[in-house]
Nucleic acid binder design. Structure first.
Lengths: 204, 204, 204, 204
DNA sequence: AATGAATGAGTTTTCATTCAT
DNA sequence: GATGAATGAAAACTCATTCAT
């Protein structure tokens, strides 16, 4: 069957895996084409170049993650619950979407060179900050959260605690000689992340 | 004559920069040789291959970081002070040694493939955990720290809060439209990290 | 319906431009199809291949030029006038039909490989030589033209003086730092060509 | 033996042939490398890209031709003799250096795009014009040459008469069914060119 | 030790042409 | 007739590594 969309989707999926595993420089267009079930020519037909394909993968990954975050509908929950939900979500999202971390890591190594070229990424992020801001305001008013928390810094801390565990799991397991990726360690880590964040926002 | 050592040092330094900027796959042997002021033949003479040079860079970076950590002599401080010192140290170390994060990020993208080949990295890390364990024991006994804190998880959280800020600064600044690398933001971030960690270990 | 013919014409016109600009090897089938307003499938439907399309363009260009030459009806003029008319015609034809020179140049670079495949080009040229021969005979008899002029060599000289000016205008203008394509230079050149040819045929 | 200069020379020579035969677009770097006796990597090592190699070939061809022209030392001859010598030289140069015409033809089809990038071509040409100017002045003063001849236009006519014969020999031979490249025709052509030019400059 | 030259294998990209609808 | 999608073969270009001096 001939379907432009299906072909593009297959290429994007194959590219996502390849770029996540090897980064932009290490990825091979031959392998992407091979894995996609189509061929190299199609890759260039639809995406123009390896770099443009990479950017498409990046945009897709970001969009999907923000979409999932938006769908949490955090404002419907009470503040502490909302924050806990977000921490757990972050952790689970990284767990289930194992390409996002290497993609982000790779793009950061490049100084966000490609992401900067992308339009339409700003607003989806600002809305996230607004949501957090609202949660923090309510919690502050209700006397359950510390006053003056910066929503972006909170978001960074939440991300950091889960991100680092996944992003650096290989080297950490290696140097500490302890398999940090096991299910038991994973549970421990998620609980730890929730606790650290809640401790840091709760008014005592 | 020391010229042998000088040559090796120059190559290592050039390689560190190049690998940090582009990762293993993106780094160019020609550029490393060029930047080093020596030449390609020397690179192969002393290091054998691009991959072996990469591993040498990695080992050097790890060794330097652990050495600096050891020299903190944390056990001489009281527990809360020791933990605060470690958080601040981590932050400052990443700030001053800007190649370490991309190097770690790159190696993790490769599943720690090269680090696993390295000998002599295990013990220096275990001693770090021992130090933390001692601090936590004392603090627990003194009633200033929560009981049952896992030293490795604490270490991960401490690292995470600083690491993520530096590692993902490019993409975060891009998507949130806010320059997170400015000195003001940096100070804010460090204070935030200290606060989050201390809140999470202190017995209330 | 005429749409078939219109399609072919559009393709030929687009191809003429493209082949004139880039030569056979440099021309792009996609661009020809794009410029033509039709599509690639039509190109292959009507012309079979890029090379056959190229030959079609070439034949058309030659046919049109010879047709225009024939329509000069040179034999109705007196010899010197006829020759002057031909010189001016050549110059103006190259000026107005700017694709003919690059097409000829490209085909000559290929050793006339494609033109040789073409039928039906011989006779139209021989008739041109016959016309020149007649003009030269009359002029010789009347005592206004030198005896023994070879019509083909005369034709070559006439062509040469105009052709070279147009064909090499770019490089000449570049190396001599003088814009030879300006209207003033053009007039000068045409007058010069007429003078050189007439000087060379006139009996003194 | 290893010799940078020899390798470059071999590549340039092979490239000259290939570009002359097929033009920039039609030339194949694999063939150039093969013909050169070295390899593709060397081509990129020394010249950077196909286009830069092409420009190097072009510059070399131009330089060689102008050098040969300079070495004629035309000013030592009397005016008519000098002009005759130049006409014959042009003819013979094109005959013996059969790559120059296709190279010029190809570059002109590209609108002199590459030549324009080249430095150091201006002055060598202006000196040629000065020489012609001097010859014309002397001839005019001595009463053997027409007054007011433009040296550049004279140079163009001289070039044209020989250039066109060689550049368009393939198509002309094809359409007129007469082998214009034979030695007999060649002699005829050279004599014709000399005659036409001298007729056009001589004061009657 | 030091250095520029050399190379084979691989990598990205392009192109004319054909197929499915 | 008309059109976008698809493809294999070939093209330009790159890279880590080795050689000759």
């Amino acid at each position: 069957m001939r379907s432009a969309e299906r072909t593009q989707r297959a290429l994007l999926a194959a590219a996502e895996t390849e770029f996540a595993e090897k980064g932009l420089a290490g990825a091979r267009v031959d392998l992407i084409a091979g894995r996609s079930g189509t061929n190299k020519r199609m890759l260039y037909y639809y995406f123009g170049s390896k770099e443009k394909l990479y950017l498409a993968v990046l945009e897709q990954a970001y969009t999907a993650m923000r979409k999932a975050e938006r769908e949490l509908n955090l404002t419907r929950l009470d503040p502490l619950e909302a924050i806990k939900t977000l921490v757990e979500f972050k952790f689970n999202y990284f767990l289930k979407n194992s390409t996002i971390i290497p993609l982000l890591a790779g793009e950061n190594m490049l100084g966000a060179k490609y992401l900067k070229r992308s339009q339409r990424l700003g607003e989806m992020h600002l809305s996230l900050i607004k949501v957090l801001h609202e949660i923090l305001s309510v919690g502050e008013k209700n006397g359950v959260l510390k006053p003056g928390i910066d929503p972006l810094h909170l978001y960074m801390s939440i991300s950091a605690l889960s991100y680092f565990y996944f992003s650096n799991s290989s080297t950490l397991s290696t140097v500490f000689g302890r398999d940090l990726a096991s299910p038991a360690e994973r549970k421990l880590r998620q609980a730890h992340a929730v606790e650290v964040i809640l401790d840091s926002v709760r008014l005592r």
